[in-house]
């Protein structure tokens, strides 16, 4: 059992005797520090999607399906194509990739986990952290080295913009938490 707070895009959860692949999660804070988790789910039996909300502490069954370590190969609209160590290719629908697609870039080397249901590749889960290069960000404000002052930065090869520490420069490699989309640290 996992809490809603721990569920990530790519997980498959059981509800009402149906497996649902988690396409997107969005955690927000309610009053008194409680979390609300909004999810976009796709029913793998009837192929329909729905949006739902949970308290952060709600428990749910995550089902373990067959998984394979793969690397990203290319995008053939609407499919993301991944390849395993034996060069077998697997297509994952862009809709099922969900928010993870934000971090998928050509040439990425991180190992992803492709999940299968009934012999079909149904989702992909990224590593918890990935390293990406900063394509554009404003110069640092003078003197701040605390890491507490944040500024937006664009990532090479994608359209995402995340908040990074003020000391980060263009061309720096940074570590990003794929669960929250948050900047973790500079790695070069």
């Amino acid at each position: 059992m996992k809490t809603a707070h721990e569920i990530r895009p790519g997980n498959v959860i059981m509800f009402n005797d149906s497996p649902w692949v988690v396409q997107k999660t969005e955690t927000t804070r309610s009053g008194r520090n409680a979390a609300i988790v909004k999810m976009k789910l796709k029913n793998l039996l009837i192929e329909s999607s729905t949006e739902t909300t949970f308290k952060g502490e709600d428990k749910m069954d995550v089902i373990i399906l067959e998984r394979l370590d793969c690397t990203y190969s290319y995008f053939a609209d609407p499919m993301y194509v991944f390849m395993d160590a034996e060069y077998n290719q697997y297509d994952v629908e862009a809709e099922n990739v969900g928010d993870a697609a934000r971090y998928i870039v050509d040439g990425m080397e991180e190992t992803c986990q492709v999940t299968f249901y009934d012999g079909k590749a149904i989702s992909v889960e990224l590593p918890t952290t990935i390293i990406r290069e900063v394509g554009y960000t404003e110069p640092a404000a003078r003197g701040d080295t605390s890491g507490k002052v944040m500024k937006p930065a664009k990532i090479v090869g994608s359209d995402i913009e995340i908040m990074v520490a003020d000391f980060v420069k263009e061309g720096d490699k940074i570590e990003i938490d794929t669960r929250t989309g948050e900047f973790k640290k500079r790695v070069n």
Partner: peptide
Amino acid sequence: LSAEDWVDGCHGLPSF
């Protein structure tokens, strides 16, 4: 009660 933008997107959604 919250005035944040996300409220509208969560209001009325089911929770399994």
